[in-house]
Design a protein around this nucleic acid. Structure first.
Lengths: 216, 216, 216, 216
DNA sequence: AATGAATGAGCATTCATTCAT
DNA sequence: CATGAATGAATGCTCATTCAT
């Protein structure tokens, strides 16, 4: 168990081994319960080497977040083709997202659970990634409106809220799909598309749900 | 700092003070970073008394989860009137939910972040509450279908996925609304109703979004 | 489990209940591992009452030692008839001793193990009892010598050593007999009589084992 | 106070220092009253190092018992010459035993008092050593019988009881000799030889002490 | 490039003991 | 006669981090 203890590797390689071990350990045990001892052992190196390369537990965790955030956004971007219609882009992006989160559950735990749970500086690190995704979805909504030849009469703030809701729903479905093998990435994406696309269509058609007058 | 140090309180009262302090501390620092020392001091009692009444850190955290889960579901239930149409019930439930989470952000952090992040036995404790809410939303969807005189041709498994997505979206919007004072509970509820209700309507009308053929 | 919780008992009775509980708890858990909580609960009273009557854990333990030491020496004395020949007295005393220790194993644990293991002031408390027994055995040896019409040419210091050895052997056999049900008090007494009486007889006859000259 | 604080010792050396400190502390304070803090300080190291090398208080105490049990049996074995007559072997063994116990009183306290008083897993650890010694004495008795050209008509169970009694007497005399400087190892051994050897001789000659008929 | 040796600081938990009624 | 409420002081144990080589 743990990486084979090969000696004298170049620094870059060793660092990736350490990050692999760290993501796995942080993802499974949680940030606080993960011990540097366990990470070092899993990486097949001594603890001082981990400190030499990555400075501290905090820095190590931050490095994990950054690496995995970049990997996730890269996966989503790689799944999407800019020229296609907006719904197709959304569909492709969701599939890439769910595929990635189900392939790397430890990384997803780090990003979605651990980083958000343990305050600064981790929360803002992952918030940056999330903002990027929300912005992407927001763009897609606006593009969709244009494609439907409608001026989005949605105020910008409301579009942001809608994007936020969609991303939240996607995150939730990722956990849901990860919980058991019955739900595939494709099914999760289809479920979300059904709710979202229809809802967005109506929304852009101007038919909103109107809240009742605030009583007393 | 901390509660006023009143002496010789009956046990039931002290226990609530301890739970108040614990929810606040767990919600802000996180389960692991919270120290029993800090909780005891915030509650205005000595550590041994906390142990005498609540046994262990684990039991204390579990008691927090149970109390706050009960409070949240009670708040939602209290906000909903069973006789009204399904959309109105959903709207009222969402408003009650967002109002409660914004009033008690520490409790929301305990339920949504801390309990889920720190494994068993906490995760299943809060999962029970969540399952209850998902079941409630699922019922509402089916009721809405009946009200629209449509047999929901949605398979049960798909309804479950939709409910999961809506609850996830709501959770996300609760965090979003809590992050700053610009978004009110009412606005969060309206945003979600817009996406959800329209989407559900289309869905029940049988117009689903169809994924493209799987390319290979 | 524990004494029936009858209220308002006279002090003397309550004290005995407490001592019963204490002997049992100290004997089984050991002095340090026994908690005042457990003793109070087993005695069916509240902790402050234990303190009111017996002052402290140390005093409580001392009281246990005294009571049980008195009970043990009383039992031995009651088993012996002063007029009889010395060997018969020794035999009767040993039988009384082994019978008592096997009837009250917790008390024996308190006297033989716990009190000796936990230093002053307990060790000297039980040492007093032991000294009394050693003195009794010493007397018996001298009486036996007189009965055999021999001036014991044993120096007093050597008689003391012999008595010490016999008492140690008896203590050891008490543990041995308590360890399993195969050995009865009668058998333990017979075994010791066989070693001791023959040895003493030879000793008094002047035939001692002579150590070799101290070599180099 | 405590060992000289020399830095950076190899592990094996440090471990012995820790065991030295632990035997001394456990022997004087008792197992429960001894604190890991005190042991670490006496060993001239920090507490975490003690835990790193010896895992837990329980393991540390067990390691003490094992080391000292091995040392004591080794000392006895080293004092005995297999070829010599049985009485000479017994004499030499006893002298070695009393010499060792008086040289290492803390170790003797650990083995004879502390380990037996604090239950499993310690009791059985030291019981193994004791069984070894009892077996050795039993052998010696049988050899002595052969040397006297007598079939020991003692049943095996009775020989076991006799050996048990002798070992118990020896243990008691060790405490007695340790209590003050007036009694030397040589005197303790002589005292026990006098009781034992004469007693054994008579026993093997078939002249046993017969208990009176059981009355009523 | 890599590690064996070592620690300061903190944490959950327990216990003997007391006060106010 | 009796107790519910409360605590000061330890104790076993763990962890992130560093130093000397």
């Amino acid at each position: 168990m743990g990486a084979v203890k090969t000696k004298r590797m170049p620094r870059a390689v060793r660092e990736q081994q350490m990050l692999d071990a760290a993501v796995r350990t942080f993802g499974r045990r949680g940030y606080m319960a993960a011990s540097m001892d366990e990470i070092a052992e899993l990486a097949g190196v001594s603890k001082p080497l981990v400190y030499l390369y990555l400075n501290s537990k905090e820095d190590l965790f931050t490095a994990c977040i950054r690496r995995e955030a970049a990997a996730l956004t890269a996966a989503v971007r790689a799944g999407v083709r800019p020229g296609l219609p907006a719904d197709r882009q959304l569909w492709d992006g969701l599939r890439a997202f769910f595929t990635h989160t189900s392939h790397y559950p430890d990384a997803w735990s780090v990003l979605h659970l651990q980083a958000r749970t343990h305050g600064e500086p981790f929360a803002s690190e992952v918030a940056a990634m999330r903002a990027e995704i929300v912005a992407f979805v927001t763009q897609l909504i606006l593009v969709a409106a244009r494609e439907a030849h409608r001026d989005p009469d949605l105020p910008a703030s409301e579009v942001a809220g809608v994007a936020e809701a969609l991303v939240g729903a996607a995150e939730s479905l990722a956990d849901w799909a990860n919980a058991g093998p019955e739900v595939t990435a494709r099914q999760a994406a289809a479920t979300l598309m059904n709710v979202a696309w229809a809802g967005l269509g109506n929304l852009m058609a101007g038919s909103r749900w109107t809240p009742p007058e605030a009583a007393h």
